[in-house]
Design a protein around this nucleic acid. Structure first.
Length: 451
DNA sequence: TGCCCTTTGAAGCGT
DNA sequence: ACGCTTCAAAGGGCA
């Protein structure tokens, strides 16, 4: 399954499930997120707390009560896979049309047709497209499309969901339209604005940056000089050119999704033909500006650092060799899953709608909203995630999620350290209830009511 | 300073 | 095949 049926498995099996999808959910969602966003939020939060606090056996009830059944539990039960499956079929045309009018994946040549041209890009998709797939735009070959994307900038996620809440608030100076850009483009953004593009200044860093992320869209961490066979440096350049940051393997693209991702050939050839060899990043993991690419988590960062704690377990020799290895091999992050993509996109909005800042609390809300999403909406993210994985796969053929396992599988990382042997997630959840209450209590009067 | 918390989903590994 | 574990993002909380 992880192999996505070869995505190419675009036979995409049978997903009758999707056929039963309804539209009501989406509208409802829109409504709830628009006009009564705050109230809804409070509602969600309160139910969140109540739910986790009061019991563990009726966890799924509150939602059902709160919202008109956007989808049945049965859907949810099998939706995970169903959606994936369904999403996979998208290429086959199942999703053609309305549900995902502007799916970004259109940038993938063979996917282009059905979605892009109709001009009815969903804001979300537009966002995604803009930022993540500028190349597509370029490939489309036109200033026109480029301009179109620029024009599309004005609308922000806010307008998607709310017409009254200035969702555009981005905690970390992340452009409101960046949510779907994984791998911290916001960090990268300020890095190196294309000379030919107008640049504003990042309020945080003071570093000039392009007015819009789409032009930079560093999606995946570059693996300059490594990731085995993908030392393609173009990635660094790409952002400046409004290209995706993906390194393109010169040697060998794997084609797990022959039918779906013909993008490889076209993209790589395009890039190689577009960018002269000299436009190569001077340093691995360093932007041409000298600013390290955020997506490339250097060994000293986070996880690795924690590993040092465990370092005593390893010989210094081992550490040395490891260090060296890490030097060469930047940390390639996992592709974001559907929910992560959703979180990225919606977090700012949720944060803007309430005073909550704690991610833990925010994530709970997001989790709720995720469940409340219509099938179409979710499918959209599943599809995005699928493409993400595909792309990731192509860019980092040798990469495995295992590569990121700090302590190795089976060894519990520092996290969840307090989890007792028999402890369940639910128990943990419950234990965290106080945290939630606390967080929410300090957050919003409306939210307080529930407590 | 750095881990923990939360969420869902993907993926790896062990049984 | 199934179940468990880790990681992905995010940022305030906390030891």
């Amino acid at each position: 399954m992880p192999q996505l049926n070869g995505g190419g498995g675009d036979d995409l099996g049978a997903n009758d499930e999707l056929i039963s999808f309804k539209d009501e959910g989406e509208q409802e969602e829109k409504i709830s997120e628009n006009s009564s966003a705050e109230r809804d939020l409070a509602d969600v939060k309160s139910s969140l707390v109540n739910e986790s606090e009061t019991n563990q056996n009726s966890s799924s009830d509150s939602e059902a009560e709160r919202r008109p059944p956007p989808r049945s539990e049965s859907f949810r039960d099998k939706s995970r896979e169903s959606l994936e499956e369904a999403a996979k079929r998208q290429d086959g045309g199942l999703f053609k049309g309305p549900p995902y009018p502007g799916y970004p994946f259109i940038m993938i040549p063979d996917l282009t047709g059905p979605y892009l041209p109709n001009g009815s890009l969903s804001p979300t998709a537009r966002t995604y497209l803009q930022m993540k797939w500028p190349l597509l735009d370029v490939q489309a070959g036109s200033l026109q499309s480029r301009q179109a994307l620029k024009d599309a900038r004005s609308p922000s996620p806010a307008h998607i969901v709310s017409n009254k809440v200035p969702v555009v608030q981005h905690p970390h100076h992340v452009h409101p339209l960046t949510p779907l850009i994984t791998y911290s483009n916001e960090h990268f953004t300020p890095g190196n604005p294309p000379p030919h593009l107008p640049a504003d200044v990042d309020p945080k860093t003071g570093i000039p940056r392009p007015p819009h992320p789409p032009d930079i869209s560093p999606y995946y961490p570059l693996s300059p000089g490594t990731v085995g066979q993908i030392p393609h440096p173009l990635g660094w350049l790409v952002p400046q050119q409004g290209q995706p940051v993906y390194p393109i393997t010169t040697g060998g693209f794997r084609h797990p999704y022959p039918t779906a991702l013909t993008v490889n050939a076209s993209m790589s050839s395009f890039l190689s033909s577009r960018f002269p060899p000299h436009m190569v990043p001077p340093h691995h993991s360093l932007h041409t500006t000298g600013i390290p690419h955020p997506a490339i988590v250097t060994p000293t960062v986070k996880q690795e650092s924690s590993q040092n704690d465990v370092g005593s377990l390893h010989s210094s020799k081992h550490q040395d060799s490891k260090k060296e290895e890490e030097k060469k091999k930047p940390h390639i992050k996992k592709p974001l899953n559907a929910f992560m993509l959703y979180m990225k996109e919606m977090r700012a909005k949720v944060v803007a709608e309430c005073t909550l800042k704690e991610s833990a609390a925010i994530n709970q809300i997001l989790g709720r909203r995720w469940h409340a999403l219509s099938r179409e909406e979710q499918a959209k993210y599943y599809e995005l995630a699928r493409k993400e994985r595909q792309l990731h796969m192509q860019l980092y053929p040798g990469w495995s999620a295992r590569d990121n396992y700090v302590g190795g599988y089976g060894k519990k990382k520092k996290r969840k350290r307090d989890k007792q042997p028999g402890e369940t997630n639910g128990e943990k959840k419950s234990a965290f209830a106080t945290y939630k209450v606390k967080a929410a209590a300090s957050a919003h009067p409306l939210q307080m009511e529930a407590y």
